Simulated scan of single mutants.
Amino acid sequence: MSRLILIIIIAGLGAGAYYYLNQPEPTPAEKLESAAKEAGEAIGEAATAAQEAASEALSTATDQASEAASAAVEQAGEAAEQAGQTATDLANQAGDQVASLSAQGQELLDTWLQEGMLTAEQFDYDAMVDSVKNSQLSQDIQDQVIKILDGIKDAPETAALKIQELRDLLAQ
């Protein structure tokens, strides 16, 4: 039985060799078809590789963009925090300056009243104008005070009313 198997194997190999060696040459059309098939397979493999590379590049770009956006958001948050602190500091300074100027205006008025320069009966226009011009009050406040003092000088009968205007203005 082993001989029979050996004879069948040898006969099969012989038939396969005969068929392979006696195969006709492929025609040009068959060669083109075979080349096109191989080119199609190569293009498919290249497209798959390109798709994988593009997917990986997109993933990398997305990761980098995400990191950059996170860094930008963090920097913007820090900048906003610094700007808020600066604004708070400036507001506090401005509030302190306004309070100081308001106190200075009130002191000026108190001095005029204590020294008797500004009463319904007594009015020392020149001394008060000089003290206003030498004060650290804002120019706008100085102009308003001098305007009220001019009003008292022009119409002494309105002194009580104008003194109240001065109090309101300088007590702000």
Rank of each mutant, 00 (worst) to 15 (best):
D143Y: 00
D110C: 04
I5R: 13
A57E: 07
I10F: 14
L149K: 03
V129H: 01
A54V: 12
Q104V: 05
G16F: 13
Y20V: 09
N92G: 06
S70M: 15
Q142R: 02
S138K: 00
L113R: 09
A171M: 00
A120R: 14
D89G: 08
G151P: 10
S55Y: 10
A69N: 12
T111Q: 05
Q97R: 11
S66D: 10
L32C: 02
A49R: 10
D130L: 13
L109A: 06
D143V: 08
S55R: 09
I7N: 15
G77D: 06
L4H: 14
P28S: 06
A71C: 07
I146G: 07
Q85K: 13
S59T: 12
L4N: 10
Q75K: 15
D63L: 00
P26G: 06
A17L: 11
E52F: 09
D89P: 01
I146L: 05
L6F: 11
Q23L: 13
I8D: 14
P24S: 10
I152F: 02
D124L: 02
G116I: 02
G116N: 02
E165G: 08
A71R: 14
D154W: 03
Q23C: 04
A76E: 05
W112L: 02
V98N: 07
R3E: 13
E121F: 06
G116Q: 07
A91P: 05
N134D: 12
E41R: 13
K147V: 04
A76W: 02
Q75A: 15
D154L: 14
Q97C: 01
L6N: 14
Q172F: 10
T60E: 14
I10P: 00
T60M: 11
L166C: 02
A29V: 08
Q106S: 10
L109C: 05
I152P: 09
A68W: 05
E107N: 05
A83C: 08
T111E: 08
L32T: 08
L101T: 03
L4G: 12
G77S: 07
E33Q: 14
G105Y: 06
E107R: 05
E52S: 09
N92V: 04
T119I: 07
I10V: 15
S131E: 03
L149W: 07
N134F: 03
Y19S: 12
A80P: 06
L58I: 14
L113V: 13
E74H: 10
A79P: 00
A65W: 04
A61R: 08
E74A: 14
L101G: 02
L161C: 05
A80C: 02
Q144N: 05
Q85A: 13
G105W: 02
A127H: 01
L21R: 08
D140S: 12
G77Q: 08
